[in-house]
Design a protein around this nucleic acid. Structure first.
Length: 799
DNA sequence: GTCCTGGTTATGC
DNA sequence: TTCAGACGTATTCGG
DNA sequence: CCGAATACGTCTGAAGCATAACCAGGAC
C-alpha cells in the first residue's frame, strides 16, 4: 500500500475514532452526525504532543486489519444514532442479487485475468445497463492496490466483464474511468469546481458549507468528505445510477450555460448525489472534481482604481487519485481487447500479445485521441487491425512530442553519444499544432489538444502567406510567440498570455505573434510521423517560406562540441528564449506523439546547478496539504525581507521540491512557530488566506525560472511598479539555509535588482503592454457595429 | 434593462 | 510548468 | 551461471504564477 493511500485511509479511521470519542458533544444545527472533526478542524495541526508525529497517522491501526474503511466509517457514524439499520435489507430488490453477492462479484475482479470468470463478476441481469456501482467498487478495489500490474489487471477485468455482458456500455465506462466526457479538442467543459461542488454537497447532505470546508481541510479530499457525509437516513434504491446515466448527466452539466446555469448544474449534481449509494458518492465527487480550487478568501476592501482584482487560487486538473490514470487505462483496454478478441488471433510473430496490444492502444490513442472511434473499431475489427482502422486523421490533434529535462551539456553529450543531433532554440510561447486541410481550412490546437483556432485568426490568415503554393495540406508543430513587429523583438510570455482567447477578430488583436516552426508531421496527404527528423526538417524547409514577423523556422545548429553548444545556449537565452531543445536527427528520430522519450531533451539555465535565479526566502505561512499531503502542510507562503521598511513581503507560494521527509521535517519544525495572526510587518494580498501563520524563523533557498510582475505578491512593491510586486515563475525548494537568519534573507532591493538584470530586455515592453490600463469589460458586437446577442461569439471588441 | 464587481472556472506556461 | 516516489524492467555484479 | 543489487524509464499525483472567460447579484 502506498503512503498516499495509507495517509488518506488512516485519516478516515482517525476521524471515525475522533467522532466516537467526541460524540457526546451536541451538534447545534446540523443533522448529519459525520462531521465532528474538532481535533482536526483546528488549523494548528500541532495538537499532538510529539511534533514529529502526524496526528492523522499517529494511532496504530492494527486494531482493524480486516474491516474495510467503509465499515469503520459506518460504525463510527452510526454510534450517535443507531436507528437506520434497515438499510442492509432494503438494499435488495427482487431483480438483483443480494448485497453479499455484489461483494462476491466485485471480489472476482481481483483474480488473475487467466482464470477470471467473466459472468461471475456481473450482478446485473440480462438487458440491464452497467450500474455505476460496478465501476465505483472497482475504483475502491484499485484504490487499495499500489502495483500497476494489479491495477491494470483489475481494470482489464472490468472491461472484459462489460464487453461480455453489456458491450454497448463500454464507451461510457471507459469515458468515466478516464475521467473525461468528450475528446478534449471538442472543448466541452463541466464548469464545475470545488466551490460549486461544495454547494451541491451542502444541499444534498444538509450540511453547512463551512463544515464541509473544514472537513475538506482535515481530510484533504472532497471525495472523502462525500463518503463521510453519506447520511444513513436517506433511503436509496441500489443501482439506480448506471454508468450511462452518470456520463449523460455529466454531459448535461457541461451543456448548461447562460442564465441560472449554475443552479441547473447544481441540481444535476444533487440528483446524482442523492441517488448515490455505497461507495458511489466518493467517486462521483472525484469525477466531478475536474478542477480544484485552493484557498480563497472573501474580504472586501477598497482598491486602488488601477488595480485589478485577482483571486489567489490555483487550479489543477485532478485525477481519480487512486493510482489509475490514462496510461494504465489504455493498457487495460488493450489487454481486455486481447482476451475478448473474437475477430482474429494475434499475428504469430507477436510473443507477448498483452503487452503488444497495450502498446497498440497507446499509440493509436496518441494519434487519434477519441475513445468513441477507438472503441467502436475495437469492437468491430479487433485490436490487431486498430493501427489501420484508427490512424492519424487530418484535423484531429496528435499528442505533441515532449522533451525531458536535462541538467547540462555534458549530460546531453552523454546521452546522445555517437549519434547525430541538433540543437534548437526553445521559444517561450505557446505550443501550437496547425492543421491545414485540402479545402484550405485551418485548425490550431494547443499542447493539450484544445482547439485554439478562434484565438489566432492572425495565424490562420498568414498560413496562405507562409506556405508554398504547391502545398495542399500539412500539420505543423510550432511555437506561437508574442512578437513586436516594429522592433522585431520577441515579447515575454506574460504579455502573450494577455491575448484574448475566444472569438478573436483581427482588428481587435492587442498582442501580435510570430510562429516559430520546428517540425512537420503531415504533408500533402502523407503522414511524416515515421520519417526521421532530418527528413521531416527537409520537408519543412522546402514547404514554407519565412515571412517577416509572422513565420520563422526555429533557430538550430548541428554540433557535437560542448563549448559550441554552451555558447549556443547563451545566445538562445540572450535572444529571449528559455533554452534549447536537443533532438537526434537520424537515429530514433521519428515523431513519437505525446511520449516523453529520450529522443528530445530540453536544457534550460535554471535546470543547471549553480546557475539561474536562486533566492533565500522566509516561510511566513502555510496551507494544509491535500491527497497524499493530507496531514502535513502542502504549501508555504514565502517572503523576502525589506530592510528599509523592516517588513516581510510575500513573493510566492511553494509546494514542490520537497522530499516527503523534508516536508514532514519542515512541518514539524514550523509548528511551534505558529502564531494566531499575521505579524503587522507582513505584507501580503488579502486574497491570500493561509491556514496558519508563522513567526519568521527559517530561510529556504528557492530556485525559479523567471521573475514576473505580480498582481498578488508584494515583493519589491513600489520599486519596480507603484502597485505591483514581483513573484517567481516555477518556484521550487532547493535546500534549507541553516546558516541564515530571516533578516539575512534576500532583500527587496536584491529582488528588484534581479528584475532589472534578468528582464532588462523586456522591461520597456512590459510597461507598454502590461500596464496600459486595461478596460476591464468586453462587449460583443456584430460586424455591422450593433450589439450582439450576449450568448453569441461572432465578434468581440473593446469599448 | 445596463453597468459593474467579485467570485469561480479554464488555460497557458 | 517542476518535482519526488513507486513500480517494473533491464543490466551489472559477485559468488 | 544465477540470484541480488543497481540503474534507468514510466507513470502518477503533489504543487507554482498569470491570465481570460463567464456567471451571479447589486447599483442604478
Amino acid at each position: 500500500m502506498s503512503p498516499i493511500k495509507r495517509n488518506i485511509n488512516d485519516a478516515l479511521m482517525a476521524n471515525a475514532r475522533a467522532r466516537a470519542a467526541s460524540s457526546k458533544k451536541p451538534q447545534p444545527s446540523q443533522p448529519s452526525p459525520s462531521k465532528k472533526l474538532k481535533p482536526l478542524e483546528n488549523p494548528q495541526i500541532p495538537s499532538s504532543p510529539n511534533p514529529k508525529s502526524n496526528p492523522l497517522v499517529s494511532e496504530p491501526l492494527e486494531s482493524k486489519p480486516k474491516a474495510s474503511i467503509t465499515d469503520v466509517l459506518m460504525k463510527g457514524s452510526k454510534k450517535p444514532s443507531p436507528s437506520p439499520s434497515k438499510k442492509e435489507k432494503k438494499d435488495e430488490t427482487p431483480k438483483l442479487k443480494s448485497k453479499g453477492n455484489v461483494d462476491e462479484c466485485v471480489g472476482q475482479l481481483k483474480r488473475k485475468e487467466s482464470d477470471f470468470d467473466l459472468k461471475a463478476a456481473a450482478w446485473w441481469g440480462e438487458g440491464e445497463r452497467v450500474p455505476f456501482r460496478f465501476l465505483a467498487r472497482a475504483f475502491d478495489l484499485i484504490d487499495k492496490e499500489s502495483g500497476r500490474i494489479v491495477i491494470t489487471s483489475i481494470l482489464c477485468n472490468v472491461f472484459r466483464t462489460v464487453i461480455a455482458t453489456t458491450p454497448e456500455d463500454l464507451i461510457s465506462i471507459v469515458y468515466l474511468a478516464a475521467n473525461k466526457i468528450a475528446p478534449s479538442h471538442e472543448g466541452i467543459e463541466l464548469g464545475i469546481g470545488d466551490a460549486s461542488l461544495i454547494k451541491a454537497m451542502s444541499d444534498s447532505y444538509c450540511r453547512q458549507e463551512k463544515s464541509i470546508k473544514n472537513q475538506l481541510k482535515a481530510l484533504g479530499d472532497l471525495g472523502l468528505v462525500a463518503k463521510a457525509s453519506r447520511s444513513q437516513q436517506m433511503l436509496r434504491k441500489p443501482d439506480e445510477l448506471t454508468v450511462v446515466k452518470v456520463l449523460d448527466t455529466f454531459r448535461a452539466i457541461a451543456k448548461e450555460s447562460g442564465k441560472d446555469s449554475q443552479d441547473k448544474k447544481r441540481n444535476h449534481i444533487k440528483g446524482l448525489l442523492i441517488a448515490a449509494i455505497d461507495c458511489e458518492p466518493q467517486y462521483l465527487v472525484r469525477l466531478l472534481q475536474v478542477t480544484t480550487t485552493l484557498h480563497f478568501k472573501k474580504i472586501k476592501r477598497v482598491r486602488h482604481l488601477d488595480t485589478q482584482t485577482h483571486m489567489s487560487n490555483t487550479i489543477f486538473k485532478t485525477k481519480l487519485r487512486i493510482g489509475l490514470a490514462e496510461q494504465t487505462l489504455l493498457a487495460a483496454l488493450g489487454q481486455a481487447a486481447v482476451y475478448s478478441e473474437k475477430h482474429s488471433t494475434a499475428p504469430s510473430h507477436i510473443q507477448s500479445p498483452l503487452e503488444e496490444a497495450a502498446k497498440i492502444i497507446k499509440e493509436v490513442y496518441s494519434v487519434l485521441p477519441n475513445y468513441e472511434k477507438i472503441i467502436t473499431a475495437l469492437l468491430n475489427d479487433g485490436v490487431w487491425k486498430l493501427p489501420e482502422t484508427c490512424g492519424f486523421t487530418l484535423g484531429v490533434p496528435v499528442g505533441p512530442m515532449l522533451a525531458k529535462p536535462t541538467k547540462g551539456v555534458s549530460e546531453i553529450l552523454d546521452k546522445f553519444q555517437g549519434t547525430e543531433f541538433t540543437c534548437e532554440y526553445k521559444y517561450d510561447g505557446e505550443r501550437a499544432q496547425i492543421h491545414y486541410m485540402e479545402d484550405g481550412s485551418v485548425e490550431i490546437y494547443s499542447r493539450n489538444a484544445e482547439r485554439n483556432t478562434g484565438k489566432f485568426p492572425d495565424v490562420v490568415m498568414s498560413v496562405e502567406r507562409f506556405k508554398k503554393p504547391n502545398v495542399k495540406s500539412f500539420v505543423l508543430d510550432c511555437e506561437v510567440v508574442g512578437y513586436d513587429p516594429e522592433k522585431q523583438k520577441i515579447l515575454p510570455f506574460q504579455i502573450l498570455s494577455t491575448r484574448a482567447r475566444k472569438g478573436v477578430i483581427m482588428s481587435d488583436i492587442t498582442v501580435k505573434v510570430c510562429i516559430f516552426a520546428f517540425d512537420i508531421l503531415y504533408l500533402n496527404g502523407q503522414s511524416l510521423l515515421q520519417e526521421q527528423l532530418i527528413d521531416r526538417r527537409e520537408h519543412l524547409y522546402n514547404s514554407f517560406n519565412e515571412v517577416d514577423a509572422e513565420f520563422k523556422f526555429a533557430t538550430a545548429i548541428r554540433s557535437n562540441d560542448l563549448e559550441e553548444i554552451q555558447r549556443f545556449l547563451d545566445t538562445a537565452v540572450n535572444s529571449s528564449c528559455e533554452g534549447l531543445i536537443i533532438k537526434t536527427l537520424k537515429k530514433d528520430a521519428t515523431y513519437e506523439p505525446s511520449k516523453r522519450s529520450l529522443n528530445w531533451l530540453k536544457l534550460k539555465k535554471d535546470y543547471m546547478d549553480s546557475i539561474g535565479d536562486s533566492l533565500d526566502l522566509v516561510p511566513i505561512a502555510a496551507f494544509h496539504g491535500r491527497g497524499k499531503r493530507a496531514g502535513v502542510f502542502g504549501a508555504f507562503l514565502l517572503a523576502c525581507y525589506d530592510e528599509n521598511k523592516e517588513e516581510y513581503q510575500s513573493i510566492c507560494k511553494i509546494g514542490t521540491g520537497f522530499s516527503d521527509i523534508m516536508l514532514e521535517e519542515r512541518s514539524a519544525s514550523l509548528r511551534p512557530k505558529v502564531i494566531p495572526k499575521p505579524k503587522p510587518y507582513y505584507q501580503f494580498a488579502d486574497t491570500i488566506d493561509p491556514d496558519v501563520w508563522f513567526e519568521p524563523s527559517e530561510v529556504w533557498e528557492v530556485k525559479a525560472a523567471d521573475l514576473s510582475i505580480s498582481p498578488v505578491h508584494r515583493a519589491a512593491a513600489g520599486i519596480v511598479d507603484q502597485n505591483k510586486g514581483i513573484s517567481l515563475r516555477f518556484p521550487r525548494l532547493l535546500r534549507i539555509r541553516e546558516d541564515k537568519s530571516p533578516e539575512q534573507a534576500t532583500s527587496s532591493d536584491q529582488v528588484a535588482d534581479s528584475w532589472d538584470l534578468d528582464v532588462s530586455w523586456k522591461q520597456p515592453r512590459m510597461i507598454k503592454y502590461q500596464w496600459k490600463k486595461p478596460p476591464a469589460r468586453h462587449y460583443k458586437i456584430n460586424t455591422d457595429g450593433s450589439l450582439a446577442n450576449l450568448g453569441g461569439f461572432d465578434a468581440v471588441t473593446r469599448i
